[in-house]
């Protein structure tokens, strides 16, 4: 009889009423397939069960005093057997940066990269189609798959894409700004966590990865761009973005994480 000297704990008493009630329910439900007499019996059992149940709830017999038996062994403190993992200890595998760039650095890097990046694309547009609007219109194709009337001939399509369209221009600038800013933010967060030089990751590895992805999925994501894109200038533009953003991010002051 351990504990605070308590001898008994009050608990609900065992009762057959729930079983009787359940039996009543199942007999009621058996009626449609067996015999309606079953349902009648079930209703009687249901009433008996509920009455017994209510009796348990409203009289002292519904409770019994359970005698207290010997309790569990007391839990003992195990002093000094725990040590938190710290960098340098064997088994410590997390590689978390102790310092990181502020989010503004990533945003800045993304936007600067975004400003420089279009230059190769615009040069391509000027040389190949004598129009800087050609690549701008292509970019807007991300959200407007039915940009060009497909019944037009190839030359008519090119003529359409080479002209200035204010709506497509705003759309393209927005898309470009959002993608640049989000990639920049990812740079700001990711670059300090990667081993080695950030410029290698941000300037070469990552642009290579997403350029490969774009190459594979362009047909689905932006069919117009897929049909008209000039891959060399496209790839150059990606690296311009990656290198610029990585440099801007890497040059900002790091703050404690």
């Amino acid at each position: 009889m351990a504990g605070d000297g308590r001898q008994k704990v009050e608990m609900p008493a065992a009762t057959v009423s729930p079983f009787v009630l359940a039996l009543g329910i199942v007999l009621i439900f058996a009626g449609p397939v067996l015999s309606w007499a079953m349902t009648a019996t079930g209703i009687v059992l249901l009433i008996v069960g509920i009455s017994g149940w209510v009796g348990q709830l409203t009289s002292p017999e519904g409770q019994i005093e359970e005698p207290v038996v010997a309790g569990p062994k007391p839990i003992e403190g195990i002093a000094g057997r725990v040590e938190a993992l710290r960098p340098g200890m064997p088994g410590y595998r997390a590689r978390l940066p102790e310092k990181m760039h502020p989010y503004s650095a990533g945003l800045k890097g993304g936007l600067v990269g975004g400003v420089l990046m279009p230059i190769p694309a615009l040069i391509f547009g000027l040389i190949a189609y004598r129009s800087i609007w050609f690549p701008v219109n292509l970019l807007a194709g991300v959200v407007l798959p039915q940009l060009v009337d497909e019944t037009l001939s190839a030359t008519e399509q090119v003529a359409y894409l080479s002209a200035f369209h204010p709506g497509l221009f705003i759309g393209a600038v927005l898309i470009h700004a959002v993608i640049s800013a989000s990639l920049g933010l990812m740079y700001g967060v990711m670059l300090p966590t990667l081993p080695g030089r950030p410029i290698i990751w941000g300037g070469i590895v990552l642009p290579l990865l997403w350029t490969g992805f774009s190459y594979g999925f362009m047909g689905v994501l932006n069919p117009i761009l897929h049909d008209h894109v000039d891959w060399p200038s496209f790839v150059v533009a990606q690296f311009v973005f990656g290198i610029t953003a990585a440099i801007v991010v890497a040059r900002t002051e790091q703050i404690p994480a």
């Binding site: 351990a2 504990g3 704990v9 608990m11 207290v68 010997a70 309790g71 569990p72 403190g77 002093a79």
Partner: peptide, 29 residues
Amino acid sequence: TTSPPPSYNFETIPTVQSRRPLWDQKHPE
């Protein structure tokens, strides 16, 4: 509590301070 627990589970209702109440008791430091 004991294995198997008594019908009333806990003679004294335990008090909890964290997600791992038994850790707290085993590692008071």
